[in-house]
């Protein structure tokens, strides 16, 4: 068990997740007003604005903590073997995971993301999310930010960027939730995001990557098996 997620990062993560859910739902209502009737457009707009403004300080807190605590190292790629590592990771998700091969990446405190995660998260956190926040801010009061909007080519362009990123984040969340279930148990990564502790095995048990079966009882059984398995591996190590 290693402590990989610091408390402020966990708080940021879940606040951000809740905000994103609200933003996606209200964003859908705003985008498809007239076609969709989840809530009224007026409520959707107000909610979208309020929640949007929660994302900004939350993001700033995350950035500040990452810089101060050195967690930002997790987003900086280590030198050497970039293509080899990314190839290994792609091969693992495309083939290895089905064969029961171990995950080529080992989670450490200094390096908690595999290279694919690292790239994706770095692009999201340092490029896409700031762009989404900025375009969202501009669209909140178009007239107030008119000069900046004009620099970017007008409201239509700014809105298009915001909408495309909105679709991207929606797709990302779907993928993110699925990938979160690919730990050594389906709930392992999710639990770790609540407790901060991730169970690490030098050798990934082969049954680990099995998908969630329909009944929760089988789920529990498998977990015990794996836990037991994990202990054996640890003892041998």
């Amino acid at each position: 068990m290693i402590y990989i997620h610091h408390a402020p990062i966990m708080v940021w993560h879940w606040v951000n997740a809740a905000c994103f859910m609200f933003l996606i739902l209200t964003g859908l209502q705003i985008r498809f007003a007239g076609n969709l009737e989840i809530i009224s457009l007026e409520e959707a707009l107000h909610l979208h604005n309020y929640v949007g403004f929660m994302v900004i300080p939350n993001y700033c807190m995350w950035l500040l903590y990452c810089l101060v605590s050195g967690q930002i190292k997790n987003y900086i790629p280590k030198t050497g073997g970039f293509f080899q590592k990314i190839k290994e990771q792609v091969v693992y998700y495309a083939f290895g995971i089905f064969r029961g091969d171990p995950n080529p990446h080992t989670i450490t405190v200094e390096n908690k993301f595999n290279l694919m995660q690292q790239k994706t998260y770095a692009i999201i956190m340092f490029v896409l999310l700031p762009i989404q926040i900025l375009t969202g801010l501009f669209l909140w009061e178009i007239k107030r930010f008119e000069n900046y909007i004009d620099l970017l080519g007008g409201t239509r362009i700014v809105n298009s960027i915001h909408v495309v990123l909105f679709f991207f984040f929606t797709a990302f969340m779907i993928g993110h939730i699925y990938l979160a279930t690919l730990g050594h148990t389906p709930l392992a990564h999710i639990k770790a995001m609540f407790t901060g502790f991730e169970e690490v095995h030098e050798e990934e048990p082969t049954v680990a990557a099995e998908p969630t079966p329909a009944s929760p009882t089988t789920d529990n059984k498998e977990e015990t098996v794996m836990h037991h398995d994990g202990e054996i591996v640890a003892e041998r190590a």
Binding site: I30, G34, L45, R156, I157, N159
Partner: peptide, 9 residues
């Protein structure tokens, strides 16, 4: 039309 962007409309 670069500036006339109406949500939903």
């Amino acid at each position: 039309v670069s500036n006339f962007n109406v949500p939903g409309g």
